[in-house]
């Protein structure tokens, strides 16, 4: 076991408890989705998709805060480490993030529940809408036992991320197969480059890119002014950069 990490994390927890009132207020502030994940942002994305004759791919922000973290991690791993074919599919779409509540304001025929993604063909009215909702592997329970279990646990976490990426990739490629297969080689190259330049390198409406390496989370574009660290947690390498479906508090948004 990483004793230094354990001690640091314990001290972190004590420090956090001391600042409890502020953290509670911040926690509630974090429930908000980023401002451009609301109706105006979705409308802008829809109109951009319609004008460019691209499908609109909506990454669905769950209502449940815990689910937001897990889904943001899976989608982040996919967008950062997905195959070239997957990036072609992503780049052929206009991508945005929104809750189902917001999506149904503009697309009432959106499917029930909270699928992982919703694909909208915006070229006509009524728009054709379909859910992309692959079954993702269940969470890996935290091991309670001796130190020998940690390596196996980390391997399980890594495998889970691989499975998540494969499941998302398979479902998206299937949903966009007709479109992707009709693209020329040059169009595929352009779509792949667009996915990387637009969605991997920059914010996707309704989300931020954030990084986690085991204990802390750093939201990209949010200034870092210092703090305390710990080293006990473990985040699979592929899932370290993830989609953060919250409005970072403390910023004027």
């Amino acid at each position: 076991m990483n004793r230094r990490g354990f001690l640091l994390s314990t001290s972190t927890a004590i420090g956090a408890a001391a600042a409890w009132p502020a953290l509670v207020s911040n926690a509630f502030a974090q429930d908000r989705v980023p401002e451009d994940g609301a109706l105006a942002g979705l409308s802008e994305a829809y109109r951009t998709a319609q004008r460019s004759a691209r499908p609109l791919l909506v990454l669905v922000i769950p209502d449940d805060n815990g689910a937001r973290w897990d889904r943001g991690s899976a989608l982040g791993a996919f967008l950062n480490t997905g195959s070239d074919a997957a990036m072609v599919a992503v780049g052929s779409c206009e991508v945005t993030c929104a809750t189902m509540t917001v999506l149904r304001q503009l697309v009432p025929q959106a499917p029930a529940g909270e699928p992982l993604m919703v694909l909208v063909d915006p070229t006509r009215v009524p728009a054709v809408v379909s859910a992309i909702d692959p079954a993702l592997p269940a969470e890996i329970p935290f091991p309670a036992g001796d130190a020998n279990q940690w390596d196996a646990h980390y391997a399980q976490l890594d495998a889970r991320v691989d499975q998540q990426v494969a499941a998302i990739e398979g479902a998206l490629l299937e949903a966009l197969r007709a479109r992707s297969s009709s693209m020329s080689s040059a169009q595929r190259d352009a779509a792949r480059a667009r996915a990387v330049d637009t969605y991997r390198a920059h914010r996707i409406r309704g989300s931020y890119w954030a990084n986690q390496s085991g204990c802390g989370v750093h939201v990209e574009e949010v200034p870092v002014t210092g703090g305390i660290g710990c080293g006990m947690g473990h985040t699979p390498v592929r899932a370290r950069r993830f989609l953060y479906f919250f409005a970072p508090q403390g910023n004027p948004i």
Partner: peptide, 28 residues
């Protein structure tokens, strides 16, 4: 008119505002 999008403007943090837990932890 089309509804304007409020793009988050990420200004430097006001030191009187508590730091997000994540950024605190990542700071070191």
């Amino acid at each position: 008119h089309t509804m304007p999008v409020v793009t988050p403007a990420l200004a430097p943090r006001d030191p009187s505002v508590p730091e997000p837990l994540g950024n605190l932890l990542e700071g070191l």
